[in-house]
Amino acid sequence: MEPWLFLPPTPWREAISALGTGVLSRLEEIRFRVDVPVMLYTDRESIQLTHEGVPVIARGQDIRRILAILVDHSLYARVEELRQGYITLPGGHRVGVAGRAVWQDGHIVTQTDITGLNIRYARDVNGGAKVLMENLRRRGIAGNSWVIVAPPRAGKTTMLRDLTRWFSQAGWRVVVVDERSEIAGPGTGHRGFDLGPHTDVLEGWSKSEGILTAVRTLGPDMVVVDELGPEADLDAVIKARHAGVEVITTLHGSEQNGLAGARLKRLWQSQIFDAVVFLGRSPGPGAVVGVWPPAPWGRDGIAL
């Protein structure tokens, strides 16, 4: 059984270990919500967690205890993550945290009264990068700077990890700016996922600072960064591209919404990417559902 399943304490651990291997192999998420049964989510269904036939219910104190155990009783080291609504566990597994925001001077500083935990399994899937690469080359896209756009749980981070490994194994010097420790999934002082022999990881750095530091000090051929956020991130990506560094990054979105998203529109208009790749969940996470070739000969041949 995957070690991540043992992260919650008893009685949840026993209940999870009693699940059949069929469920365990497809398990994607465990959700603890206060005062309701714990739910398990696989790729195709949701199941109530039961222990000896009785649904397992998490109370407020249970959720506090689980959170304390998940963060190794060291919340002081996770305040920034908690403020952003998640905790990353060794192995890159992410725990979404739902609670009451604590405001100070007009900013959210942390969360309290935690009422929900969503433990999400980080998978390492080989082969997606190769398929995507072949797909892009078939379309005549020769460059290696791409924006991967997808809705949540469509396999963006998994694809990014596989692409990192692929380029690194091909001899590229890759720097991963891993603000949330999800791509590399390191343990204390150890590497997590295999990201290839030529990959450096800037763990916990903000994306903008990490990208600029990587370009300035680590001499990368490529920078990989997940989920671009505010303007500063976009500025840093554009600077990296102008410095001659390839960048692969991701954005939340979908092909239907297209350029309605301000960030994708700005990246598209900056003409610094060779392709925009859209991923979807069907037939499975990581499925390529659309590709926009480089602007200005982009979608529908319209120069933007």
Binding site: D72, H73, S74, Y76, A77
Partner: peptide, 11 residues
């Protein structure tokens, strides 16, 4: 160890 280095408590 806790305030400056933010070492995990068990360590």
């Amino acid at each position: 160890a806790i305030v400056w280095q933010q070492t995990p408590l068990p360590t």
